[in-house]
């Protein structure tokens, strides 16, 4: 017995270390995916109040971005006024690059055919190359993201709907800015799956999922849907998130195509770089 006690005292540091590691791992395994249920988390009063105070300050730093977003939305809404839609239906002037404050050009269109019940769903709209629609333009509606233009004829265009298993969209969580890739799994026309959100991201039901703005197709922050359900993919460290789409594809009637004005410039530049 005395030897045992001597042994413990001799290596007390190691045992203390083991004790703390055991507690840590116990906490880690038990509470990490149920962090709302433990009292030691950021919803506890102390941490929450510190974070709230910091939020009050940092809100000011994001004012500029908020302003930009608001003005962009203003511009977007303005293009929906009747007189503007008329003007936008005319050919766009040659020197449009001079209007460098405008990033995206919106053209309204009407859905004349669509499907929701196949694996590869397409939408047909009543505007085509005569009205300036070209392949690879983004398509949105007032309620959220719709798809990407595939083929164009003089008066019509077909759009790969979001409900198409071939389409992958770069999306992010509006709250935490973590981004992943969104695709349709071919099941319900009201839901899509968001992958590749890392396990440490804060995910909660009801959070908005928006476009990331990394591609030249869509502006940043276009609503896609809200989180309906999520689970952690054990072993990979990524969430699999079921997103309730904000658009009802069954009753879609009016959409807008999005053109990034500087896209040609960007592509020419990238082609130059690739040829080198």
């Amino acid at each position: 017995m005395r030897n045992f006690i001597r042994f413990i005292i001799r290596y007390h540091l190691f045992f203390l270390f083991l004790l703390f590691e055991t507690i840590s791992f116990y906490l880690l395994v038990n509470y990490n995916h149920y962090h709302n249920q433990t009292f030691v988390n950021s919803s506890s009063k102390f941490a929450a109040s510190v974070l709230e105070i910091s939020g009050n300050f940092t809100d000011y730093f994001s004012l500029k971005r908020a302003n930009e977003e608001l003005s962009r939305e203003n511009a977007f809404l303005r293009t929906q006024l009747p007189e503007n839609t008329y003007r936008l239906n005319e050919p766009v002037p040659e020197n449009r690059q001079t209007a460098d404050s405008i990033q995206y050009l919106y053209r309204p269109a009407k859905v004349i055919n669509s499907s929701v019940n196949k694996f590869h769903n397409y939408i047909t709209i009543n505007k085509g190359s005569k009205q300036g629609i070209r392949p690879e333009m983004g398509v949105i509606s007032a309620r959220g993201l719709v798809g990407v233009v595939r083929h164009v004829s003089p008066n019509y265009a077909t759009v790969i709907s979001l409900l198409n298993t071939q389409l992958k969209i770069s999306a992010r969580l509006r709250e935490s800015n973590h981004f992943g890739s969104l695709e349709w799994d071919g099941n319900s026309y009201q839901h899509a799956i968001l992958n590749e959100i890392p396990a440490h991201a804060k995910v909660s039901v009801g959070d908005a999922v928006v476009t990331s703005g990394y591609s030249a197709l869509f502006p940043e922050g276009i609503l896609i849907g809200t989180i309906d359900d999520f689970e952690l993919n054990q072993g990979e460290g990524f969430y699999v998130i079921r997103v309730k789409l904000s658009i009802d594809f069954k009753s879609l009637t009016y959409v807008e195509t999005v053109e990034k004005i500087t896209r040609d410039e960007q592509q020419e530049l990238e082609k130059l770089t690739n040829n080198d």
Partner: peptide, 19 residues
């Protein structure tokens, strides 16, 4: 951990460092 919502993760690593 309380700030990062990763209960136990940083605790274990920091205890390891202290050891």
């Amino acid at each position: 951990d309380t700030f990062l919502n990763t209960i136990g993760l940083h605790a274990s690593a920091t205890v390891f460092l202290a050891f």
